[in-house]
């Protein structure tokens, strides 16, 4: 089968998985959800890494460097802040994991 068609399959199926999983996320966690998906979609780091390291000329390398930087900001900052938020949510009958 054509490669692009396989990619389309993957996209549509992943979209469905996303739809069914995420509709079940309670409104309580919508902010962490947003920062989590933002961190996850910083997976474009993967493409940026190849661009920065493939030695395709100065322009591509510089663009790649900026892209790696931006994507890394989201990976590092995104997962940390999501964790920080999720750490705060506790039930009434439990002690917080760590005093803030």
């Amino acid at each position: 089968m054509n490669l692009q068609l396989i990619e389309l399959y993957v996209f549509v199926l992943a979209g469905f998985v996303g739809f069914f999983v995420i509709t079940r996320v309670p409104a309580l966690l919508h902010t962490p959800l947003m920062s989590a998906t933002n961190a996850i979609s910083a997976i474009s780091l993967v493409g940026s890494l190849v661009l920065a390291g493939a030695d395709r000329g100065r322009v591509a390398t510089v663009l790649g460097f900026v892209a790696v930087t931006c994507a890394t900001i989201n990976v590092v900052g995104g997962f940390i802040i999501t964790d920080r938020m999720l750490k705060m949510f506790r039930r009434g009958d439990r002690k917080p994991e760590r005093a803030r």
């Binding site: 992943a14 995420i22 996850i40």
Partner: peptide, 10 residues
């Protein structure tokens, strides 16, 4: 594609 689709759906 997968991670982007998850973010897009969300």
């Amino acid at each position: 594609i997968i991670a982007g689709a998850l973010d897009g759906a969300s």
